[in-house]
Nucleic acid binder design. Structure first.
Length: 306
DNA sequence: AAACCATGCAACCGCCAGTAG
DNA sequence: CCTACTGGCGGTTGCATGGTT
């Protein structure tokens, strides 16, 4: 009860990180890796708690971060994953290389929720708002499970995926954003024009495809069943392709590799394939003034986002 | 130019699960 | 088995910034 914050100890700094602190942490982790987070502040000479260091590294200093604005494809993917996973930001982030759960969570809360509402979609259930309101109004006790954390409904854990995916840092992971991987219909339910319906799969719909809407509605029903039925989902998981978006278990597995190109001879923990992905990795804040937004811009520019 | 407001983002808080002793 | 510690996660807060009046 009432356990105190890990920063309760006196003299521990809180709040925004200074460039000097960033540099200390970055240098330390670059040189030694992060073994035990709780011991890092001491070793790195930081007046921070280990948690704070971990968060700073994960959300900001980690060299494989993409930064920059989210692309439309990324937003679409987040929405679709949210429909499946709910507020499991870390799992959603695992499907978006270079993005953090915090970043995605912020985007969702500040932007995507509004966009969905504007399109008449309930951001919680991913159903049309009218349907949700009606559902609330009626005496139906049946919870809406479409996209509403369906996995949470399970009393037993969902079946393990057929293979552990280490897609997180796989540069080949992000598959082309096509409309072929799941009938999620953002935009069509509101009757809005197709040209501004960029959600999910709708954007590829042509007039000819409109003729297939009835079929698609059927598929939507199937999708609902799919989400509500752990057995169906399990079957899908077992039949999935390696690049399926619905690899539910998607923890990234760091791999131990020798960073022979590093100025330090120390071996360190780096995520798999990080070396190829990260042109800025060996440029650790040579100028402490380059931080914050500047670093974001630099990183974003390096990834072609500006 | 100043005040106010809205928004985005970084960081903290609290809880939980896993694990070592 | 119990306890304390640690890492991880999601929710929330507070500040900085940009836009509007």
């Amino acid at each position: 009860m009432g356990r105190q914050s890990c920063c309760y100890k006196q003299k521990l700094r809180k709040g925004l990180w200074s460039p000097e602190e960033d540099e200390k942490l970055l240098r330390h982790i670059t040189k030694y890796g992060h073994g035990c987070w709780s011991s890092i502040p001491k070793q790195a000479g930081l007046q921070r708690c280990g948690k704070s260091c971990r968060l700073r590294w994960i959300n900001y200093l980690r060299p494989d971060l993409k930064r920059g604005t989210f692309s439309q494809e990324e937003e679409n993917l987040i929405i679709e994953l949210h429909a499946v996973l709910g507020n499991r930001w870390s799992q959603i982030a695992a499907r978006l290389p270079g993005r953090t759960d915090n970043e995605i969570k912020n985007l969702w809360n500040s932007c995507l929720k509004k966009k969905l509402k504007q399109k008449g979609i309930d951001p919680v259930t991913h159903k049309p708002l009218s349907e949700v309101e009606n559902g609330e109004g009626s005496g139906s006790n049946k919870p809406s499970l479409v996209g509403h954390h369906p996995i949470h409904q399970y009393t037993s854990p969902p079946p393990p995926p057929p293979q552990l995916s280490s897609n997180w840092f796989n540069p080949e992971f992000p598959p082309p954003m096509t409309a072929s991987y799941g009938p999620l219909y953002y935009g069509t339910t509101t009757g809005g024009s197709a040209n501004n319906s960029t959600w999910g799969l709708v954007q590829t719909q042509t007039e000819e495809e409109e003729e297939e809407e009835e079929e698609e509605e059927e598929e939507e029903t199937k999708w609902t069943e799919f989400l509500n039925n752990p057995l169906l989902m399990a079957a899908a998981l077992q039949n999935q392709t390696p690049q399926s978006y619905y690899n539910i278990e998607i923890k990234s597995e760091p791999c131990y590799l020798t960073n022979s190109s590093s100025s330090s001879s120390n071996d360190m923990w780096w995520p798999q394939t990080q070396q190829q992905q990260l042109p800025l990795q060996h440029e650790p804040l040579q100028n402490p003034d380059i931080c914050g937004k500047d670093m974001q811009r630099l990183t974003a520019a390096a990834f072609g986002h500006i």
